[in-house]
């Protein structure tokens, strides 16, 4: 479970997060939705502990991001906005490097990589050096890398970026499966349709604040007749004005 409690983050004069609070439960996919520059990435970066909040905190699997960042990092798998691979290493080596740093022993590690290869359909690129991979291939390997230690919590920043229709579909199926296995998944997106069809909970962020949150059904009911997109635009304009 991820509990976010009043996060504030400022960069010089800009306030990127202005008191963000929400909860993401286990066995559910929580979608972080918002226009460009709303603070989605900053929020995730604070959660995966590469940025420190100015105020507020968050608990991931019970660990405080402020004073136990190493315990938090053991609990999470992360796919940052643009996740780079090491071009001189093969996909397998890229994934193994992260597995080793998570403390996996060689044998279980190779077993896990074979599992992920199958799951993410990496067979034709698993033993190729990642130099010259397409955006989609890179994202798939980076996703495998994030999943190598079978983390309880997944933080994905716009994972469907650059993926084709087929790959997006298998990503959705994979996330659905992980949810059913009881994982807690937060993923950000600016595409309304994608979030609505996949997420169990929605958190709409605008101008560094949570504008609206709830299940897609609740939010559609609130929107009284109009669709989710309408609600999104209304919520965002209300906060920004």
């Amino acid at each position: 479970m991820i509990q976010v409690d009043g996060l504030v983050k400022r960069f010089a004069a800009v306030t990127a997060l202005d008191g963000v609070s929400f909860t993401a439960d286990d066995g559910r996919i929580t979608g972080l939705l918002g226009p460009n520059g709303a603070g989605k990435s900053t929020c995730l970066r604070v959660l995966y502990t590469v940025l420190k909040p100015d105020q507020g905190t968050a608990y991931i699997g019970g660990h405080d991001i402020g004073n136990a960042p190493l315990s938090v990092r053991r609990e999470i798998g992360v796919l940052p906005h643009s996740a780079g691979l090491y071009p001189h290493l093969t996909s397998r080596e890229n994934i193994a490097y992260y597995g080793q740093l998570h403390g996996l022993e060689p044998e279980p590690l190779q077993r896990r990589i074979n599992e992920l290869t199958h799951l993410l359909e990496l067979q034709d690129i698993i033993d190729r050096r990642s130099k010259g991979f397409s955006q989609g291939q890179r994202t798939k390997v980076a996703l495998a890398r994030a999943l190598v230690h079978a983390p309880r919590h997944l933080l994905l920043d716009e994972p469907s970026n650059g993926l084709d229709v087929m790959a997006t579909r298998s990503l959705r199926m994979l996330l659905g499966r992980l949810r059913d296995e009881g994982h807690c998944i937060i993923f950000s997106s600016h595409i309304m349709g994608e979030v609505a069809s996949l997420c169990d909970d929605l958190v709409i962020i605008a101008a560094g604040r949570v504008a609206v949150q709830g299940t897609p059904a609740e939010l559609t009911a609130q929107a009284s007749g109009s669709d989710l997109e309408e609600l999104f635009i209304d919520a965002v304009t209300a906060v920004t004005l």
Binding site: L79, A83, G84, Y98, G103
Partner: peptide
């Protein structure tokens, strides 16, 4: 180099100081 390749950020999310 790590930064330019965008590999620094995921690296820093690992449980390694």
């Amino acid at each position: 180099g790590e930064r330019e390749r965008n590999s620094l950020e995921p690296l820093l999310t690992l449980p390694v100081s």
